[in-house]
Design a protein around this nucleic acid. Structure first.
Length: 211
DNA sequence: ATCGTGTACGAGGGATCACT
DNA sequence: AGTGATCCCTCGTACACGAT
């Protein structure tokens, strides 16, 4: 379109190489922490991928550039905690994305389509995703719709926007901001600084860890 | 006071891709 | 194929600021 890859596709290509668990949020041997990467969508596949929406709505679905889901609860009362990444090339785009993840009295839902649940976790792990959720007892025949319990969002901004934002704006508690190059860099998921930053993007960081 | 420049912002719309 | 979501472009407006 512009003679070169768009910013969006560069970010998605990079996030596609990130692991099933968001960097820095690696579970420490806790089997109930089952993270799965729901987005970006597989490059070749035309398969539907998880997305976010409000109850009853068929429009204005949110398709983040990166979306990780941590399944929790029980088969009777399942839920997900989500970690999303949005790359914002323009300030208008940032305003749009922030409004979608803003704290609200409405309920946010995560929809996991059947084909995505039936597919294997990764090329090197043939376990179907529905088994990895730990919440489904048999292969699903309907989309798995879960309430979202906790939301964390990381916004990637162009450096100029990032500097302007960082000097004058106050993020909400669930928001995290990084310059775009922190996402697009080679092996960005292995960057210790980014990992340390992202490790704070969870509810556990709000509690004192006792010895 | 007037003008030019740079920046921020918002409306509108085209292109592309995902999904139905 | 049609609709919807997203990205990002152009264009117009408002404002701050410095030069004239």
């Amino acid at each position: 379109m512009y003679g070169q890859a768009s910013l969006d596709s560069i970010v998605k290509d990079r996030l596609r190489k990130w692991p099933q668990c968001p960097p820095g949020l690696t579970p420490r041997g806790r089997s109930q922490d089952s993270w799965l990467r729901g987005r970006p969508a597989d490059q070749q596949g035309t398969m539907a991928h998880p997305f976010l929406k409000l109850p009853g709505s068929t429009r204005l679905r949110t398709l983040p550039d990166g979306l990780w889901l941590k399944f929790g609860g029980t088969p009777v009362e399942p839920f997900v905690d989500i970690f999303a990444i949005e790359a914002c090339g323009t300030l208008q785009n940032l305003l749009d994305k922030r409004s979608r993840f803003a704290p609200s009295t409405q309920s946010l839902l995560a929809v996991c389509p059947v084909p995505w649940l039936l597919a294997p976790i990764a090329e090197n792990d043939t376990t179907p995703r529905w088994m990895a959720t730990g919440l489904l007892r048999r292969p699903p025949v309907m989309d798995f719709v879960l309430p979202v319990r906790d939301v964390r969002v990381m916004y990637g901004l162009k450096r100029r926007h990032y500097q302007g934002f960082a000097t004058s704006q106050v993020p909400h508690p669930h928001e995290y901001f990084v310059p775009m190059d922190a996402l697009t860099a080679e092996d960005s998921d292995k960057d210790p600084a980014l990992q340390a930053f992202m490790s704070r993007a969870c509810a556990a960081s709000n509690f004192l860890s006792l010895p």
